[in-house]
Design a protein around this nucleic acid. Sequence first.
RNA 1: GUGGGUGUAGUUCAGUUGGUUAGAAUGCCAGAUUGUGGCUCUGGAGGUCGUGGGUUCGAGACCCACCACUCACCCCA
Length: 424
Amino acid sequence: MQLQAPKGMKDVTPKDSYKWQAVESLAREICASYGYYETRTPVLEHTELFLRGVGDTTDIVQKEMYTFTDKGERSVTLKPEGTAGVVRMFLENRLFSEAQPTKMYYLYCPVFRYDKPQAGRFREHHQFGVEVFGAPRASADAEVIALACTLVGRLGVEKLSVNINSIGCPECRTTYNDALKAYLRENYNSLCETCKTRFEKNPIRILDCKEERCQGIVADAPKVLDFLCEDCAAHFEELKSCLDALDIAYKVDPMIVRGLDYYTKTVFEIISTEGAYKGTVCGGGRYDNLISELGGPEMCAVGFGMGMERLLLVAESFRQIPAPRPLDVYVAAVGEAARAQGLRFAAQLRKAGVSAEFDHVGRSFKAQFKYADKLGARRVAILGEDELLRGVVKLKDMAGGGERELPLEDAAGIINVIAVNETF
RNA sequence: GUGGGUGUAGUUCAGUUGGUUAGAAUGCCAGAUUGUGGCUCUGGAGGUCGUGGGUUCGAGACCCACCACUCACCCCA
C-alpha cells in the first residue's frame, strides 16, 4: 500500500482549502457580474473528442493524455483541457438553438496531463475557464480578457503581462505557412531537430521554440500579422481598440503560438513576471471552427483556461489570502450533566447562525480553553456544575479576557452578546 | 522524454575521518490551582534513518539499483 498521492497530484488539506474557496468565490462573483453561468461536465470524455477537438498532432494528445479502456471496451480519456468537453456539452444539449451568445464558465475543473511535474506544473491541475459561443465581434475577445484580468487583479497580482496575437483563419494561415517555409528553407540545416520535424508538420510551432539558435533564425521571419486576410486583420484591430477602451494594457507578441490546434484569429496569454511562479497563468483565444468540426453548426467561440494552482502560487506571493475566522463560540463543558446541556446549547447557537464547537474528546476545562484558543474561537461559553445549578452560562471573550454571565434560558440575549463584535 | 539536486520524528533541520542507546527546534499530549487560553517552566509520546542489495568486525554516513520529492529543458495552465 503506497500511502501517497499519485505523482504530480496534490491534496488540498482542510487547513488550506480557504485559499481555494477565496479564489472560487471571487471568480463566481466576477463571472456573475459579466453574465456568465457555470457549467459542469464530466472529468472523462470519449477519447475521440480530444483527438478531433484538441488536434492529434499536439503534444497534449500525442504523449500527455490519460487514456484507458473502460469495462465496456470504450476508450475514454481524462480531460486534458476544458474546452472540448464544454463544446460537447453545448452540442449534446442543443444549446445552439437558444438565443446567442452563450456565456459559460467552469471552476475547479480537473485537468490531467501526463508530463513531468515541476514548479507550477502538475499531472492533475485545476482550471477556471470561460467560453463564449456565438459572439463574432472582437468585443467578446476583449471581454473574456478583461474578465481574466479582473480576477487576477482582484487577487492582488500586479506584475503580469497581457500578450495578444492573431494567428488568422485557415485561409491566411496557409499563405503564411508558405511564406514562413520559404524563409526557413535557407536556414533549415541550422534548426534544432524538433524544429526540422515541425517544418513540414506545423511550421508555425517553430516560432515558439525555446532553442537559442531557432530563436535567432525566427527573429526575422515573416510575421503572421502581416499575412492576415482583411477580415482577420479587421478583427485584430477591433480587439485592440476594445482593449484600449477597457484600459487594459497589452503587448502584441507575434511569437505566441498556442499548443492547441483549434485556435483561429485571436490568441492571448497572461504571463506572470514575478512571484512564486513565472510563466503562463492564463491562455486562450478564439476558435471559430471547433464547434462545426465537432459536428455542430457553424458557430464561432472564444475563451480561456486559467491554471488555478498557478494563480494561487502567484497570488500568494503578492498578498496573503486572509483566513476566515473559523469559530464564533467554543462551548466548554465538563461533567456529564453539563455536557448534555452544552451539546444542546451548541446546537441552539448553530441554529441561530452562530458557529459553535463542542468537546468530543473529554478534555479538562483547561485543555478545552487551550484548544478553543488554538481554533481561534472568539468566545468561550462555559458550562460547569456551578453554572448548571444556577441556570446560567458564562461567556468569556477570548481577546479581552472578560466574562459575562447570562441566563441559559435567554438564548436571544446570549446570541446578541456573541454576535456583537465587542471586546470585554 | 532528457538532465541536475535532495531523501533522518508530524514539520524544519543537525548528525564529525564509518564506532555504544540517532539529536535539536517547533508542533502534539500531560502537568506546574481539584474550573480558565496566549507567556514561562517540567515531563511524555513520536524515527522500518525513502526501499532493496553490496562493502565492512561495525553503515544514517561509503558503493550500486530502484522509488519518491524537487528544479531546469521540452511542453503547457
